[in-house]
Nucleic acid binder design. Sequence first.
RNA 1: GUGGCUGUAGCUCACUCGGUUAGAGCACCGGUUUGUGGUACCGGGGGUAGCGGGUUCGAAUCCCGUCAGCCACCCCA
Length: 443
Amino acid sequence: MIEPRTLKGFRDHLPAQALARERLLDIARRVYRSYGFAPIDTPALEYLEILVGKGSEETDRQLYRFRDHGGRDVGLRFDLTVPFARFAAQHVHELGLPFKRYHMAPVWRGENTQRGRYREFVQCDFDTIGTTSPVADLEMVLVVHDLFVAIGIERFTIRLNDRRVLTGILTRLGLAARGPHVLRSLDKLAKVGAESVAAELAAQGVGADAAATLLEMASLTGPPATVLAALERLVGETEIGRTGVAALRVLVERAEQGGVGGGRLAVDPSIARGLDYYTGLVLETFLDDLPTLGSVCSGGRYDDLAGLYTKQPLPGIGASLGLDRLLAGLEELGCLDARETPADVFLPYFDERHLVDYLRIAAALRAGGVAVELYPEPRKLGQQLKLAAKRGFPTALVIGSDELAAGTAQWKDLHAQTSTMIDWHGDLAVLVDAVRSGLSARH
RNA sequence: GUGGCUGUAGCUCACUCGGUUAGAGCACCGGUUUGUGGUACCGGGGGUAGCGGGUUCGAAUCCCGUCAGCCACCCCA
C-alpha cells in the first residue's frame, strides 16, 4: 500500500476551500477586466536561463529546477513577473503599447513553509506596461482597492511608498550605496523595535545622526498628509526625493477623489518592497485584523520590465494578489463560507416511480440557470435532507407523488428550516420562475 | 537553507513517576416500525500513538533519525 500524502508546502483543496478559491478568482477576474486588463497565460515550465536571468541568490535557492527528458535545463516559474517579461519581449510587436494584462496562475518556490507561505501558491497579477503615466499608478491603487472591497473585506490598508523618496533621503545622508542593507534593517522596525534597528545600523557604519533620521523616517505614522509633510522635510533639497514626495501626494489625492475611502490609504516610508527592481511607487496591502500575515497584495512601478530579454525599454507598473495567503487569512478570521456545494437547489430522489419527473424538473431548472443536484438514489427522505443540510445547500425542493398529483412542491429553506408551498399546476415554467425569484430574493 | 517548538481516531484533546485489551467530545455510519433534515435517545465503524530505529523485562511516555505543521531568521504572496 502506498501512503497517500502530499509534499511539504503543497496542498489539496477540498470543496469548501476550492469554492472559496474559485470565488476569489472570479472576483479578481471581474475587477481586472473592469479596468480593461486582458488575460494571458504562459507555461509553468520555462528554460532555466529565462528564470535565473535576474540571478539573485535567493531566487536561485528557491527555484524548482531539473533536466527534462530532452536534456534541457528547465525550471518552474517562481512568480508571474519574470514569465511576463519574457512574454512581453517575445510578443511586443503583436501587443501594441501600452498593454494591460492579468494573469492568475500557480507559482512554485522551494522555500520553507509557514502560515500563509506555501511552496505552491496562486498569484493574481495585473500589470500595465509601455507607459510611465501617473494614471497607471493611480489605476493600480484603484484596482487593489476595488478588489478588496469586492471580496467583501472591510478592514484593510493599502500602504504606499515611493522608492524615490527613500533614494532621496539616503542620498542626502550619503548612504545611497548602502541602500539595500539599510532598507532591510529598517524593514524590521515593526518587529524588533527601534533599539535593535539602531544597533544594526550602527554595525553597518551608519552614523548616529543618519540613523536617527532614518528611524524617524521609518517611524512616521498618521494621515498621509502628515507623513508626506514630514517626508518633504526629510528629503531636503534632493531632486529625486522631492519628485517622489510630490508623486505620492498627487497619487493619494487622486485616489481619494477616486473613491478610496478614509483610512484605507497610508503612506508608509518603511516599505522598501523589492529592493532591486522597483523604481517608483511601491505598495503593500495588509488585513487590519491580521497584520502578521504579511502583505496579501503587493506591487510597484519599474523602469524596465524586460531588459534581460529585449533592448526595447518596457516601463510599467503592476501588483500581485496572493490568493492562497489571502485565503489563509480569511479562513483564520472565520470569513469563509462553509458551503461544500455550488448548487442552490437540492432535489431529493423521493419517489422511485417518478424518476422521469425529477429528471425533467432538474433539466428545466438548469435550463433556467438554476444549479440543481438530484440525489442519485431513492433513499429515505430524512437521510437525503440531512446530507443536503450538511453540504450547505440553501434550499431543497421536495416533490413526492402527492405533490406531483396536486401540481405543487415543497420549497424548503434549509438554513431557516422553513417550508413554503409552490403551486405550479404541473407547468415547469411556473416552477422555474418561482424558484428563480425565490433564490434571487435570498440575496 | 539555519535555529526553536509540536506531531495520540476525520477534528479538538486526555492518559498521574515509562507498566495490563490507548480514552472523551465533536464528526461519520445505522436505528428509534415503511413521505421530511441541524435537538433527544440507542447502537456501530475507526488509532501498529506521523514514520523508522534504539534504550528497557516493558514506551504514546526516554534517545536518535526522518517526514510534516507552527514560530523566528532570511525572503516574500
